[in-house]
Design a protein around this nucleic acid. Structure first.
Lengths: 219, 219
DNA sequence: TCCTAGTGTTCACTAGGAGCGAACATTCAG
DNA sequence: CTGAATGTTCGCTCCTAGTGAACACTAGGA
């Protein structure tokens, strides 16, 4: 990512348009001149923090989202077949691979789970399928010696990831941090930080995993 | 709330101190003068958006939290010895009760968790504290006979809730559905549906819980 | 003891950009 | 053809983001 402040303008415009407000209306409510709003949207000028905050409040979005660049959401994979052999390399998150039957309430027993087994010895089993599409709640298993990406590369994707170790031990590399997750330990991290997992132990690693992509809608 | 930008300074200072960085060190990394950082912290000056963003990144917090006024984070739970008695009725989600130190990466070991114990025999222990404020990842314990709300009422709140049973068995009432969650079973549901939990068994129930409220901002 | 190296703070100053206003080009309705 | 919307551009002004030097304080050496 380059200078995120560069994207602030376009992002703001995008959100404003979504709300249906005109540029002049925004200017009026912010109590600044229309020309200035235009300049901000076209990155010809930058607002002060106070104005920035006022903008966020007016559009009723958290300040954060004004900094998100919008074109980081290219879903690469088609969603066809629920249970199968999948190569990890093609997909960023399981969301794309699992089937889409999702409800407001979902209860799953351990013998009846949708599962994906990767070639590398990694398994995902879905623990619940709710209507939330940007959420994955699953049990993951890493066989001894297996790793998240067979080619050894780091992954990065939008959203957050949370994990709890049920048994075994997993080595997590997150950014330049290497940490081990033995039984009972847990982690959470911004998954836009490059990361990788590997089971260096002799027993399988089992954990509860929660991947929470950032909510965002189709163009 | 008055001008939230007023609180930016103190808030920044609070977070900086928590990270253990010195003012001059922050200045060095931001590539601005120490005096300026001091002025920002004392609300004698305001940073530009670019600087604001740089600050947030340096402290690895989302820009949002820099705007949170500090007096609602009067951390009821200290982060050294994080166990406290709280009445469930006052709070909708643990987010409100837990302390606010949140980072991009969070690793927690089982002996060092922030915890809240409710009067009714229910305990929440936080499994990760990331920058996501609308997310709670926790281990919950229901002592035998305990229930989510002592008065027996149903709860409903925005967002979704996901759970996995580690041991014991929990009875969940979700809408007009009553289901039991024994070891290894899992659920996920829209938490705007009125719901209630109860441990009818003779052993404590332990589970991994994930509550994912919808993003929403201060009053 | 004095001396350094660290901490944070104040104040006068300046350069640059936040923000303005007038004039511009469009579009759509009457 | 007006009139009232829309968004954009270009100078200009003045405010303020950010500087640098000097301040006061504390904690260690030697």
């Amino acid at each position: 990512m380059r200078d995120p402040v560069e994207y602030l303008g376009p992002r703001l415009k995008e959100i404003r348009l979504k709300t249906g407000l005109s540029l002049r209306e925004v200017a009026r409510q912010l109590d600044v001149s229309p020309s200035f709003v235009s300049q901000i949207e076209n990155s010809k000028s930058q607002p002060s923090v106070a104005t920035l905050y006022a903008i966020a409040r007016l559009l009723s979005v958290p300040v954060d989202v004004l900094f998100e660049s919008q074109w980081n959401g290219e879903s690469k994979v088609s969603n066809t077949n629920p249970v199968d052999q999948v190569s990890r390399d093609n997909l960023e998150t399981p969301t794309n691979a699992w089937d889409v039957s999702r409800a407001r309430i979902s209860a799953v027993n351990p013998h009846n789970r949708s599962a994906i087994t990767m070639d590398s010895g990694v398994t995902w089993e879905r623990l619940a399928a709710t209507a939330e599409t940007d959420v994955n709640f699953m049990e993951i298993v890493y066989e001894p010696g297996s790793e998240s990406n067979s080619s050894g590369e780091m992954m990065e994707h939008s959203g957050y990831e949370y994990g709890y170790s049920l048994e075994g031990e997993l080595e997590a590399t997150i950014g330049d941090l290497i940490l081990s997750i033995p039984k009972g330990h847990s982690i959470g991290f911004d998954s836009s930080i490059p990361h990788r997992f590997r089971n260096n132990g002799l027993v399988p690693f089992r954990g509860i995993w929660f991947v929470h992509g950032c909510a965002h809608e189709k163009p």
